[in-house]
Structures are given as structure tokens and as C-alpha cells.
């Protein structure tokens, strides 16, 4: 479903700030794979997701989604295939627009924007039905500006928007990191539900090792812009945090110095 082949990305090449963020990174996700992604600060997790989303062109390598080579497609063209939720709850929604307007925008992801009404008859009812299971009371606030919602509510809405039009791949970049533990758990639960319901191929970046082990069927660890661990199946199910730390040390040849990861 998703194939990254020898992808390279260097920021600010030729300057003192030169930084190779992706170093011949290769990764293949099968249809229905739910992979969690961990790695220290600056390992290249966000950069990998941005490369898939086409935020900027990559320097080398190729990216295929569902068999389509998207390496040269711009960000808005790739949106057809991708659902995305970001770390910052402000990024995924338009704060000046209402809940229903945001959902209507997402319902047309990747489609041409015409001069037909922005929200069609019948869509409102659909949106209400979709919002109800979140249990956040959003179904009664369709015409409220999204800027008035809390971070957790915005993330839940962004998740819904990302899956409203079934994406080939769902990209979650630490989408619970800005939330308090209780809200984070709730949003994570909603993520699981949505992935399960639509059988979405998913990449979920997290800093929480326990979450990385508890969710999904695959665990991928990045270091210095490459995949250094890829654990799946039974092996993933039996994984523990100490295991993971030991395997990181072995794979990367250094101690895990990232306390954000350990704290989990």
C-alpha cells in the first residue's frame, strides 16, 4: 500500500545548518498495516511523514501509494490518498470555519472545488451521525467555530476529517502529544476505532513506548533518518519496553539518550 524506496532528504544543503533528515530510508506497508513509529528527537519521524505527504520534494528515492508513484506530485494532489493528523491541534482544522464546514471540506478531499454549495443537503445529518460516537457533544455544535473547541476536541475532529473520505494511508504525527493524559487516551482510543472500522493502513508516530507496543501490528524505529528496527506479528505482541530499549541499543550501537522516550 505504501512503499518508500531509498528516500533521501537533506535540509539547508551546503550551509552550516545542513541536516540529513532522511538517509536512504526504505519502508513498505502492506494494506491494513497499522505501524507505530518511534525514535529519538530529530530521528526523522516527522520528516518521513512530511515526505509521504509531499510537503516538499524529496532529494532522492521514490514514494508509491497504492501502486501509484506520487514522488513528483504536489502536496494538494497527494491529499487524495492521505489522511493526516498533526501534533499541533491548530494545524489540522480551519479555526475560523464551523465544524460542519470543516467536515464538508474534508468530505471533498482531493476533489475539484466547484461552484456547487459547500455543504450539500443531507450532509449535515451524516456529519451528526459521525460525530455522535465521539461522545464529545460535537453533534449539537455543527455551526460552532472550530476555534472555540479544546485541543482534544479539535484532534478528534481532525481524525474524523482524515477518515471521512477513506484514505489509502493515514498519517498520525504525535497527534496526542499536546493533550493531557486523559484526553490523549481518549483520542488514542478514537484513533484505534477509526483505523479498525475502516481497516486503514496507518503510520502513527508516538513518543510513548507503551503506546507504540500496545497499538498496531507493526513497530518501526527510526534513527538518523533510517529504519533501524521493524518488528511485527507475534514478536511485536510479546514486546516489552526493556526489550525495546535493549534492541535499540543493539541496532543503533548507542544508548538511548532520549528521556522523552524513556519517561513513557
Amino acid at each position: 500500500m505504501l512503499e518508500l524506496h531509498q528516500v533521501c532528504k537533506t535540509f539547508n544543503p551546503g550551509t552550516v545548518n545542513e541536516k540529513t533528515a532522511l538517509n536512504h530510508l526504505s519502508l513498505t506497508l502492506e494494506e491494513g498495516d497499522f505501524a507505530t513509529v518511534i525514535g529519538g528527537n530529530g530521528a526523522g519521524k516527522s520528516t518521513m511523514l512530511n515526505a509521504i505527504a509531499g510537503v516538499w520534494p524529496v532529494d532522492e528515492g521514490s514514494i508509491r501509494i497504492g501502486g501509484v508513484d506520487v514522488t513528483d506530485l504536489t502536496e494538494y494532489r497527494r491529499a487524495l490518498y492521505l489522511g493526516r493528523v498533526f501534533q499541533d491541534p491548530m494545524v489540522g482544522t480551519a479555526g475560523d470555519m464551523t465544524i460542519e464546514e470543516n467536515l464538508a471540506l474534508a468530505a471533498r478531499r482531493g476533489e475539484k472545488r466547484t461552484l456547487r454549495w459547500g455543504i450539500r443537503k443531507g450532509e449535515r445529518g451524516q456529519f451528526k451521525e459521525l460525530l455522535k460516537p465521539l461522545g464529545l457533544g460535537l453533534e449539537d455544535r455543527l455551526t460552532a467555530k472550530v476555534g472555540l473547541l479544546s485541543g482534544g476536541q479539535r484532534q478528534a475532529l481532525t481524525l474524523l476529517m482524515a477518515s471521512l473520505k477513506k484514505p489509502r494511508v493515514l498519517l498520525l504525527d504525535e497527534h496526542t502529544a499536546a493533550l493531557d493524559p486523559k484526553t490523549a487516551a481518549k483520542v488514542l482510543e478514537i484513533s484505534d476505532q477509526i483505523v479498525e472500522e475502516h481497516k486503514l493502513t496507518t503510520l502513527m508516530v508516538t513518543h510513548n513506548m507503551k503506546d507504540a507496543i500496545a497499538h498496531g501490528n507493526r513497530l518501526i524505529m527510526l534513527d538518523a533518518g533510517r529504519v533501524i528496527l521493524d518488528i511485527s506479528g507475534e514478536e511485536k505482541k510479546k514486546l516489552t519496553v526493556p526489550d525495546l530499549l535493549a534492541r535499540f541499543t543493539k541496532a543503533s550501537g548507542e544508548e538511548m539518550e532520549n528521556d522523552r522516550l524513556l519517561l513513557a
Partner: peptide, 28 residues
């Protein structure tokens, strides 16, 4: 009328949050 249409909504989304707009497939 215009800002109630799909295209008009896309323009408003672009002004409100261009990153979100592109993530929704809008050619900003």
C-alpha cells in the same frame, strides 16, 4: 453565494489555515 460554494469555502480555508487546506487537497 460565492463564499458558500465549494470553491468559496476552499478560499476561506486557505485564508484560515493554508496547511490544512493543502492537506484537504485544496490547491492554495
Amino acid at each position: 453565494w460565492f463564499f458558500g460554494t465549494e470553491l468559496g469555502s476552499a478560499v476561506r480555508a486557505t485564508g484560515s489555515n493554508p496547511n490544512m487546506a493543502r492537506a484537504q487537497g485544496i490547491n492554495t
